[in-house]
Design a protein around this nucleic acid. Structure first.
Length: 421
RNA sequence: GGAGAAGUGGCCGAGUGGCUUAAGGCGGCACCCUGCUAAGGUGUUGUAUGGAGCUAUCUGUACCGUGGGUUCAAAUCCCACCUUCUCCGCCA
């Protein structure tokens, strides 16, 4: 959520930044509501002050045994007027909040301006895509041949795009998760958390999934609960409605969770294999920081995610997402993309975003500034460290051998217990 | 799922309709006293939102689990919901 005071004081600037995302965005309507809202609040406050004073005087008059009928009638009428104004104020409050909840974050000045994902900018590449001197296979064929994934029965159990891992496949998936978690906690200083995989509407609103992206999520029928689309949701909200001390910051947290996405708008895309499915595993990195350190912490978090790809020796590149492609709540985002031979290109495997105070304002996560003693919103940052299913697919494709075997990357062997498949 | 009890500031805890501007205590902060330590004294102490100054200030309103209601007036009375605790039932 954007700060209404900031909008009020710099409407042109905010509009200009929003239009970098999408020319149709603007804060004009919210400014109009805000003006009206404040006017009504001032009126209501004034009447309430009068009622308070008059009611107290009734108490005093009664104590002295005087008749208060006339004053009481007057204050009763005042009460009706206040009620009307309060209804109007509530209506305007809700309208303003709803408008604000539907306005995305303003992009950071360093986010490249662009009109579509084609305007994303490559920052650098790491590693060399492997040149195969035999006919390589896509991971979906390899997974089936080696019985790592039972695609057909996964569909039978639930629906298309649900995955049943088996045997060494299941073991490899679990090995990747454990490797990521161990490295983040033991080498990079993150606290491991294991959150609920369902979250309520308030939590979903805190990180920005609700109200705008309701249709992207799975919702429980009789409960106010949604399956989480990423661990970012429960983990970022851990300190919702709390005030931290400055010494608590920065907070580093990592979590493994399955992620559930309806992928309703992606019908014909990536229909085969592990790249785009309704339920996938992910290890997430989340940070809460002060505003002063967030840019630096964002960079460090991205490097922490890159380290996983480096240790797995998977070629990748870093991209700076442009203003048209960064997520709704983000102000800046790096994508890490891994080389996928079957696609002949790099595919997203991690998205590392800085949200500034946008999520913190929605989720009401604050800290007390040591110098001023005032409360301020924290900055929130997160990124995948990494998407597990896509890592699995990248390993299977990039490590396949001419004799049909798949070599397990060195760092994973103590977790898998085998060195090839 | 059933029965009972309870939710008040950073924490403990008083408060059954107006004198609550939420008592008192603990903790925090500032200052004083003290050779050090310990103890003591004085003062101060939340959040949100509006207005005026527009840095360091003053001021209105709201907030006692959440949402409604009653009343001239609600922390206090009524209703619904949520959460926690105790007991019972069910259960990996």
């Amino acid at each position: 959520m954007l700060d209404i005071k900031l909008i009020r004081e710099n409407p042109e600037k905010i509009n200009e930044l929003l239009k970098r995302r999408n020319p149709e965005l603007s804060v004009d309507e919210v400014i109009k509501i805000d003006e009206e809202r404040r006017k009504v609040q001032a009126q209501a406050d004034e009447l309430r002050a009068k009622r308070k004073k008059d009611s107290q005087s009734i108490g005093e008059l009664k104590k002295r045994g005087e008749n208060t009928d006339a004053v009481q009638a007057e204050v009763k009428k005042l009460g009706d007027d206040i009620k009307n104004l309060e209804e109007k104020q509530t209506e305007l409050d809700n309208k303003q909040r709803d408008l604000l909840l539907h306005i995305p974050n303003i992009p950071d000045e360093t986010t490249p301006i662009g009109a579509s994902e084609d305007d994303n900018q490559e920052v650098y590449k790491w590693g060399e895509p492997r040149k195969f001197d035999f006919e390589f296979k896509p991971h979906w064929d390899l997974c089936e041949e080696k019985n790592l994934v039972d695609f057909e029965r996964g569909v039978k159990l639930s629906q298309s795009r649900f995955i049943l891992y088996r045997g060494k496949g299941a073991r490899l998936e679990r090995a990747i998760i454990n490797f990521f978690l161990d490295y983040h906690t033991q080498e990079q200083g993150y606290e491991e958390v294991l959150p609920p995989f369902m979250a309520n509407a308030a939590t979903m609103t805190g990180t920005g999934q609700l109200p705008k992206f309701k249709d992207d999520m799975y919702k429980c029928v009789d409960e106010d609960l949604y399956l989480i689309p990423t661990a970012e949701v429960p983990v970022t909200n851990i300190y919702a409605n709390e005030i931290l001390t400055e010494d608590d910051l920065p907070k580093y947290m990592t979590a493994y969770t399955p992620c559930f996405r309806r992928e309703s708008g992606s019908a014909g895309r990536d229909t085969r294999g592990l790249i785009r499915v309704h339920q996938f595993n992910k290890v997430e990195l989340v940070k809460l920081t002060t505003p002063q350190t967030s840019a630096e912490e964002h960079e460090k978090l991205t490097e922490d995610a890159e380290k996983m790809l480096q240790l797995l020796e998977l070629p990748y590149r870093r991209e700076a997402l442009c203003t048209a492609d960064i997520g709704f709540s983000a102000n800046k985002c790096w994508d890490l993309e891994v080389w996928m031979p079957s696609y002949g290109t790099y595919k997203e495997i991690s998205s590392c975003s800085n949200y500034g105070d946008y999520q913190a304002r929605r989720a009401n996560i604050r800290y007390r500034n040591k110098e001023t003693g005032k409360t301020e919103f924290v900055h929130t940052i997160n990124g995948s460290g990494l998407a597990v299913g896509r890592t699995f697919a990248a390993i299977v494709e990039n490590y396949q051998q001419e004799d049909g075997t798949i070599i397990i990357p060195e760092v994973l062997r103590k977790y898998t217990g085998f060195d090839k498949i």
